[in-house]
């Protein structure tokens, strides 16, 4: 009887951890819980005498799938923001200031953190390269300073110091909600209008000058 009892108790751990896994919101936490589920499942399978199934669960179900999913989640849950590479000023040492200034950057990070995403900045040498990258779907949004003459090319009027243009409707809605309008103006471009508009300037393939900032 006691033999039956501990088998039932351990088998009950499996639905318990599975429920924990399903209730997780953060994808990274869910990956860790998936590892726990895999360990418990291997224990249950070994308890029922299925050594081969337990081995497969530990090797494939836990190790391989967690590693692959971790890489997939990490590379997909991120917003790639294209910026223009800051030119180093010889007269002052302000050139290593992050291009979108700190309040805007932290507002963006705070917004993305709520959705368990990361912010990745990709620097491009010039505005046409930036726009070509946006059209080629290399990046999700671009951020430019509006006091420079670069922004005249985008035909947006603005009083804000920065302008963020995105090609994703959902990102635009999120930013509209969480980025204060005094910090940056926002605009949404349809991907197909981008394509037609950028044909004229699509002479050179852009290349990021630095991969990740």
């Amino acid at each position: 009887m006691s033999d039956e009892f501990y088998v039932v108790a351990i088998a009950a751990l499996l639905p318990l951890t599975a429920l924990m896994l399903v209730l997780q919101v953060n994808p990274y936490n869910a990956l860790v819980i998936r590892g726990i589920l895999g360990a418990v499942a291997a224990l249950v399978y070994a308890l029922f005498g299925a050594a081969d199934v337990a081995l497969t669960e530990a090797l494939v179900g836990t190790m391989l799938s967690i590693t692959l999913y971790a890489v997939a989640v990490r590379s997909s849950m991120s917003m790639r923001l294209g910026v223009i590479a800051a030119e180093p000023h010889p007269d002052n040492e302000r050139h290593d200031i992050p291009y979108p200034p700190e309040p805007l950057l932290s507002a963006l990070r705070h917004m993305l953190d709520q959705h368990h995403m990361r912010l990745e900045r990709v620097a491009y040498p010039s505005l046409p390269a930036l726009r070509t990258a946006l059209r080629n779907k290399d990046i999700h949004a671009i951020c430019i300073g509006t006091e420079t003459n670069e922004s005249a090319l985008l035909q947006v009027d603005h009083t804000e110091p920065y302008h963020i243009q995105t090609r994703l409707q959902r990102l635009y809605e999120l930013m509209q909600k969480d980025i204060p309008s005094t910090m940056a103006s926002l605009s949404y471009v349809q991907p197909n209008t981008l394509e037609s508009a950028a044909i004229a300037s699509a002479d050179s393939q852009p290349s990021p000058v630095e991969g990740k900032l």
């Binding site: 360990a39 081995l55 530990a58 990490r74």
Partner: peptide
């Protein structure tokens, strides 16, 4: 089952290290 247990003992830890680095 003992062989499987020892393999899981060493491999489970390896999975943990990979996940920690990611």
């Amino acid at each position: 089952i003992g062989v499987v247990g020892v393999i899981i003992l060493s491999v489970g830890n390896a999975a943990l290290m990979l996940l920690a680095h990611v």
